[in-house]
Nucleic acid binder design. Structure first.
Length: 285
DNA sequence: CCTTAGACCTGGAGGC
DNA sequence: TGCCTCCAGGTCTAAG
């Protein structure tokens, strides 16, 4: 569920809580959570490690320890929470049963990974391996907020694609970090139809998309992300960017710009909200 | 190369 | 209340 802004907030929070702390014990109980080695092996490798630095690429969290890159993806519902042993003991069974990993910290607290749908994944690589060649990130393109991604480069990577721009924005190999909610908001802001094909977009369109993407994501990060439905990250407070959403999940509500009812259609099986007046397809005759 | 359907999982919401 | 179907902020895989 989380997109770049939510992941960034999780990352910042983890850095505050974990930086230079040592993992003194580890238990991974859902076998598939550990994606590139047996779960017990990942757990035993993390034991004794200090968490040294924190970064993000797209929706991937990258925690560097003394000897490893620990790469985590929360997918739809993954959450980290940090609790005392008492809090863990007192947790309601319905919450406790979705905890798939527990990492004991040197100060007695416990870092728990909870994931109702079990979609999240963790990868562990030797610290000497370059993140540029690591399997977990092989299909992850430049992060939206990475300034090295220019409008020219975006144009270059999409101008031959026949797919709808909505689909392209969700393709993490093109640009990483955007998910279904922010894709709708970005296209509304840029006044571009989600159905527009990549090959029909101009350099100027790419400039507007990238500019809108960065402005929206940065504001969302500042507002601690978007909290709709069940999402909140661990013992984090909910974000408030949901109050800033203009079109996503607003079917039949008036467009904040022109008043026309917002429409919803599926594009590539993903619900897509847009204003048909403000986001017109280019004339193709 | 691209597109699409299906898979992976569980729980909440809405219809009947 | 219960049952059923659909839906969810994501990504990978196989198949056409």
């Amino acid at each position: 569920m989380p997109e770049a802004p939510e992941v960034q907030n999780v990352l910042d929070w983890l850095e505050d809580e974990l930086k230079d702390h040592q993992i003194t014990g580890a238990s991974i109980t859902h076998p598939k959570l550990s994606a590139n080695m047996p779960a017990d092996q990942m757990a035993s490798r993390l034991e004794g490690e200090h968490v040294r630095s924190f970064s993000r690429r797209g929706k991937y969290l990258i925690l560097d320890t003394d000897h490893y890159h620990w790469i985590c993806h929360l997918r739809m519902e993954g959450k980290f929470l940090i609790v005392t042993p008492e809090e863990l003991d007192n947790m309601e069974e319905k919450d406790k049963k979705h905890i798939h990993a527990v990492f004991d910290l040197d100060d007695g607290r416990k870092l728990c990974y909870r994931d109702t749908r079990k979609f999240g994944r963790m990868h562990l690589y030797d610290i000497d391996e370059s993140l540029d060649t690591v399997k977990a990130l092989e299909n992850v393109g430049p992060d939206v907020l990475d300034q090295r991604l220019t409008p020219e480069r975006l144009y270059e990577s999409i101008h031959k694609k026949k797919a709808a721009i909505k689909t392209i924005l969700l393709d993490q190999s093109v640009l990483a970090g955007i998910g279904n909610i922010y894709a709708d908001e970005i296209l509304f802001d840029a006044r571009i139809s989600p159905f527009e094909k990549g090959c029909d977009l101009t350099m100027e369109d790419c400039t507007r998309i990238l500019e809108a993407a960065r402005r929206i994501l940065l504001k969302a990060i500042e507002m601690k992300g978007t909290t709709i439905r069940t999402f909140s990250f661990g013992n984090h407070e909910a974000g408030s960017f949901q109050d800033e959403l203009k079109v996503h999940d607003k079917k039949d509500e008036p467009c904040p710009v022109c008043g026309h009812p917002i429409e919803m259609e599926l594009i590539n099986k993903r619900s897509t909200y847009y204003c048909p007046i403000c986001q017109k397809l280019k004339q193709s005759d």
